[in-house]
Computed example of a mutant assay.
Amino acid sequence: MITVLTPTYNRSYILHKAYRSLINQTNQDFEWLIVDDGSTDDTKQLIEGFIGECKIKIRYIKKENHGKHTAINVGVKHIDNPYLVILDSDDSLLPNAIEEIDKYWKKYGNNQSIACISFLRKYPNDEVIGKRYNESEIISNNIDFRYNQALLGDMCETFRVEVLKKYPFPVFGNERFLSEAIVWNQIALKYDTVYVNNAIYMGNYLEDGLSKNILINRFKCPKGAAANANIFLLKRFKLTIRLKNAILYDGFSMIANNKCTQYISEANSKTLAILFLPAGLLFKFWLKIVAKKQ
């Protein structure tokens, strides 16, 4: 069985989209686990209504507000099924999504080196987010395939739950935002992903969403942003990626008042020191942009 995990915060006005997409699945062998990250709207009453309809299996957990990444942590702890897919609260799955996820995990599930099967996402106008591949299936990993080959754009990742239990998202004090890349790239150091050239997920980027406000969120949560940039300093990444993230690491560390050695793993501290000045100039420019948006 597959778990569809939805972290949500004050999204009662749009959660019905995700619900409708799930009750219309061609394969109903799944559960929907909603982790409410401290919503103050009528999310609870809405979910209770969904549960009362008895159309799909639904579980609901409410926690204190501390960010999407902590909601994922809580959800993963409460999952007994072997596989999961994260469905954001403002998005939907195409009717054959669970069927496709089930098909590919049956194909690759016995290969313990594979932690993730990743599908494409598309916009409501049917345009694929990012790029299609040249092959129907490719086995690689998040670092080599997505970053080093610059095949960016959000994808629909489905994971082995046992692997995600080993890699919870770190929590930095009261910071409420952390890029999922920090965990996906850690997993990529030990496990492979199957990239399927097929879209099963439909998403959009709303004005109140995390993606639309990613720059502001990173400035508000600089410790997590610095830790995420540090992952990209590993030698597995191309030099251009490491240089860019060395600047980001320096800059976010300055904002967080951290010493630049705090999160370093394989990073070259001399490189960080050289880039400290350009990082400061870049962040002064970014601060002006953030100030205008707030």
Rank of each mutant, 00 (worst) to 15 (best):
97 A>M: 13
266 E>Q: 11
250 D>C: 15
263 Y>G: 01
84 L>I: 14
30 F>P: 08
206 L>P: 15
59 R>D: 11
285 F>Y: 13
113 S>N: 07
126 D>Y: 09
189 L>M: 14
13 Y>L: 07
17 K>I: 10
48 E>K: 12
41 D>G: 04
30 F>E: 01
62 K>M: 03
57 K>I: 07
93 L>K: 06
115 A>D: 00
244 K>P: 06
209 G>W: 02
139 I>P: 02
41 D>N: 04
197 N>D: 03
256 A>R: 03
201 Y>R: 02
290 V>L: 07
18 A>M: 12
61 I>G: 09
155 M>G: 15
259 K>A: 03
192 D>P: 08
181 A>N: 10
288 K>S: 14
180 E>A: 14
224 G>S: 05
249 Y>N: 01
248 L>Y: 09
5 L>Y: 15
107 K>E: 06
186 Q>M: 12
88 D>M: 04
85 V>A: 13
4 V>E: 03
58 I>F: 05
57 K>N: 12
37 D>A: 04
15 L>F: 07
266 E>M: 06
39 S>D: 07
275 L>R: 03
262 Q>D: 08
97 A>L: 11
221 C>K: 01
294 Q>L: 09
274 I>M: 00
110 N>R: 10
131 K>G: 06
184 W>S: 13
171 V>S: 07
146 R>W: 07
273 A>M: 01
99 E>K: 07
293 K>L: 11
203 G>A: 03
155 M>F: 12
144 D>I: 07
155 M>Q: 09
293 K>I: 06
54 C>H: 14
246 A>Q: 02
183 V>P: 08
197 N>C: 03
95 P>D: 04
113 S>R: 09
17 K>V: 10
230 N>R: 02
